[in-house]
Each structure stands twice: as C-alpha cells, then as structure tokens.
Design a protein around this nucleic acid. Structure first.
Lengths: 133, 133
DNA sequence: CCAATACTTGCATTATGGTGCAAGTATGCA
DNA sequence: TGCATACTTGCACCATAATGCAAGTATTGG
C-alpha cells in the first residue's frame, strides 16, 4: 500500500537491467509467486544480488513481498493499470538468446520441489549455496 | 533498417530517463513527427541535450530520423510489434505533475507555426536560441 | 561563395547505478 | 537456547550514463 509518488520514468528504470527484466519476465510468464531461493535456482545468480534487485522492483511498485516463516514470497502487482500494459510489453519481447526460456525451464523444475505449494528447502544450486553447508 | 541485435533491456533503458520519456510521450500522444527545434520549443530543453537523447532513442530502435533540408524529422517506429505495446504503456502513465500536458500544449502551439505542414523556422524560445541571433 | 542556421559531437565533469564481500537480521528447529 | 538457514544490507569499488560547453558538420539563402 505504498502509493507514494513514483516518478514515471522509474517504472522503466526498474526494467532497464538485465537481471530485473529476467525476474519480471519469469513472473509475468508464469503468473506465479516465488521466494528468493527459487529465483536463485532459476536465474543462477547469487542471492544477495537478486535480493537487491527485488528491493528495487518493490520500490518501483512492480512487486509486493510477503514474509512466510523464513521465506519471502514475491509477486507481481497489477495496479495501477499501466502495469498490466507494461507486463504485456515484457511478454512481447523477443528471447533471441533464449535466456528467458532457460530461466523458465529451471523455474518449472524448481516448482516441483515445493511441498504443499510452498518452498520448504533452500538454494539447490551448488554454486550459490551458503558456505555453511 | 538497422535490425541489429538490440538487447531487450535496452528498450526500457531508453525510456528510463525523464527527458526521453517526455519526448516519447509527446510523440505517442500526438502521433506526429517533429524536428529538433520544435522539440526544443515544446520541452524547453537545450538542443544539444535533446539531440543526444534523440540519438539514444534512435539507437534503441524507437525512432527513425529523416533529414529534410536543414531540418531533421523524428517519428516513432511501430515495428517490432512490442513497440506498440510499449507506447500503450507510455500513454497509460499518470501525469501527476502535468509535465506531459504542458509539453503537449506548447507542442500544439508550435505546430501552428508550420507552413505547408513543415517547420520553416528555428528555435523560438529566447532562452534556447543560438547566440548568433 | 559567404554567412546564417539547424543540428551534432568530443571532451571533461559529475551523478547514478550495479557488484561482491562480509557482516548483519530474523525465523524455526533440535 | 543455540545453531542452521533464508534473506538483507553497509561498504568500497567499478562501470555506465547524463550534462554543459564549445567546436564541429551540413545545408541553404543572399
């Protein structure tokens, strides 16, 4: 409910980054929500990086984030109305390097690991696990 | 016809600037083409600044520019298809500070100075005229 | 052919933004 | 209560991008 004045160009600024566009494209195509570790396993980027980009997307008014236990679920906001138009544009973009489709494939596989519709595990990709393991 | 590989995030990067968004919004709303001096008189920004932003928009594939004598006319490109969706988003953005509507008002007035549908004069705004006058 | 003019651009400066490391917070389980 | 873990963030560093000045190019009218 942070309806603070958002500069209009901030909407595009939010998507003017490769990683952030991958996040939004993934969520637009799937319509699903996602926690951070699922995104790490889907985009194969470190959690601190995605966490920061998620914050930027939230501040730009594209995402809402909700804590559930140790997990934080992120989902697309649909209001104000121009966001739906924005997502249509994101979905219409070409995927010539097939980065988005690769993200999507990993995300769908990762969803299979949910139990009761919720993520119950942490990062699975060896390269991005916290060193404590 | 520069169908070179444009990074998808470059599309949003192009609109992630206040001045460039004002240019595109103006052209989306009017559907008209415009030369540089008309844009200077509409946005009240120096010509070198707008010229550079126009170049960025051209390189991002949003504009085509055509020289006519001493004037260069800029118009929106409509292909690839995602651009139409992008422009719909631009048009759907709020104008809470009424910057876009002020630009539009000045642009419409400036259009009245065309003769034969073409701009025949230079910058009218005193503050942005070249010092030679 | 010269001068006015519509527009562009090299350069230096400043501002903004992305990244990685390492340390931090918060939650839940044993 | 202590530890593992899901996520966040302060800091330093580097890359990118916006700006203004001044000099440049290209076109045209006298």
């Amino acid at each position: 409910m942070q309806m603070i004045a958002i500069q209009t160009e901030a909407v595009f600024q939010a998507l003017a980054d490769k990683t952030r566009l991958r996040i939004i494209r993934l969520m637009v195509v799937t319509g699903d929500e996602s926690c951070l570790c699922e995104l790490v396993d889907s985009l194969l980027e470190p959690s601190y990086k995605l966490s920061r980009h998620l914050k930027i997307l939230r501040q730009a008014g594209l995402l809402s984030s909700q804590k559930e236990g140790r997990w934080v679920y992120h989902r697309l906001l649909m209001k104000p109305a121009y966001l739906e138009s924005l997502y249509a544009t994101v979905q219409a973009l070409p995927d010539s390097k097939e980065i988005y489709s690769a993200d999507l494939k990993r995300f769908r596989e990762r969803l299979c690991l949910r139990e009761g519709g919720r993520c119950q595990i942490g990062i699975q990709s060896e390269a991005f696990k916290s060193e404590a393991g």
